[in-house]
């Protein structure tokens, strides 16, 4: 009896809710819950200015998490994010010091540096078959070493170009920050690639079983390599935006983005084992993490408390819906 009632309710629900991933729904529900509790604390949490500001802050993490998601969908992980972000920012700022040509090429140069890091990762993972966790760790260390040697251990003096600042803080459409537009564009491109192209299908295929994808005639090694290059490039682009936001690059600016980007992807329902996940979930994860960080800092929670709550929330949410099936 109760089953038919339940079926009746489910039948009357709109189609997109019935088809949605429960993980994505939970993540969005948590966002609403966070906003609700935030508004109990202070009315300004629901003001459009605050929400737009949060979306702008989230877009930096969003750009970086997009690349991370592509790699996680393959069943790999990219731990070189911190110094790919910093290298992108520093190299873009460094290029700006070389006259008008440098200023014009600053952004592409930063992104290319990030892609180079990604290509090294990709060669290691795809062709040398080194576990991604190790090789990305190693390239991260090398990138750090290169940047330390380049900057002499201090934050570089070169500042961001006007274009970088415009991308991060400007308003091309009145009321909508440019950073949000960029995230939306990159997100749309990612959704298109993942759902409408052969490359996207292949990514999911490799994530499920690389052997099967290889036997179906796919050059899986090239796909893995491209994915890592894209991830490195997007990390560096995130760094370029961050440098534009702060108007200069800093030594450890990328450190704060590694764990949140992994957490955002995983909280959004993407399986860390690869092959399963949607970009909508990643968007939810990014907003969730940004809101959580923002609310904790508005409540003037000390850093220690913030870390503890942050960790507990991630574990609790994953226990809600991220569990692996029992081995039977």
């Amino acid at each position: 009896m109760s089953e038919t009632t339940l079926g009746g309710i489910a039948g009357r629900m709109p189609r997109f809710i019935r088809r949605a991933d429960p993980a994505v729904l939970t993540a969005f529900a948590c966002i609403v819950l966070l906003l609700f509790f935030g508004s109990l604390y202070s009315r300004s949490f629901l003001s459009p200015e605050y929400l737009l500001q949060q979306l702008k802050v989230a877009s930096f993490l969003g750009v970086i998490a997009t690349g991370m998601m592509l790699v996680i969908l393959l069943g790999q992980i990219d731990l070189s994010v911190p110094w790919a972000v910093a290298a992108g920012a520093m190299m873009a700022c460094a290029a700006a010091a070389y006259g008008p040509v440098g200023v014009a090429l600053a952004i592409p140069f930063g992104i290319i540096c990030g892609m180079l890091i990604g290509v090294v990762n990709g060669i290691g993972v795809a062709y040398l078959r080194i576990p991604s966790m190790i090789i990305t760790l190693a390239t991260n260390a090398v990138a750090q070493g290169l940047m330390v040697v380049y900057t002499g251990g201090f934050s570089p003096q070169d500042s961001a170009t006007g274009a970088m600042r415009y991308l991060a803080t400007g308003f091309a459409i009145p009321g909508v920050p440019n950073a949000v537009i960029i995230w939306a564009l990159i997100g749309a491109a990612m959704v298109f690639v993942l759902t409408r192209t052969g490359f996207g299908r292949t990514v999911y295929g490799i994530g499920n079983r690389e052997r099967a994808a290889y036997l179906s005639g796919i050059d899986t090694r090239r796909v893995v390599m491209i994915a890592f290059a894209v991830s490195g490039g997007l990390s560096a682009f995130g760094g370029v935006l961050l440098a534009g936001y702060a108007s200069k690059a800093a030594q450890s600016m990328g450190d704060a983005y590694l764990l949140p980007s992994i957490a955002a992807v995983v909280l959004g329902g993407t399986s860390i084992l690869g092959g399963r996940g949607s970009y909508l979930g990643t968007v939810a994860g990014v907003i969730l993490i940004t809101l959580l960080q923002s609310i904790l800092s508005v409540m003037q929670m000390p850093e220690a408390g913030r870390q503890i709550i942050y960790g507990v929330v991630i574990v609790a949410m994953l226990l809600l819906y991220g569990r692996a099936p029992a081995s039977r």
Binding site: Q307, I314, G322, R323
Partner: peptide, 20 residues
């Protein structure tokens, strides 16, 4: 809890660091 060790220990690591 059947969570993936990478993510689970990243999160518990944040908690341990916070307590420290």
């Amino acid at each position: 809890g059947r969570l993936q060790p990478i993510v689970a220990t990243i999160a518990t690591g944040a908690v341990y660091y916070g307590i420290g």
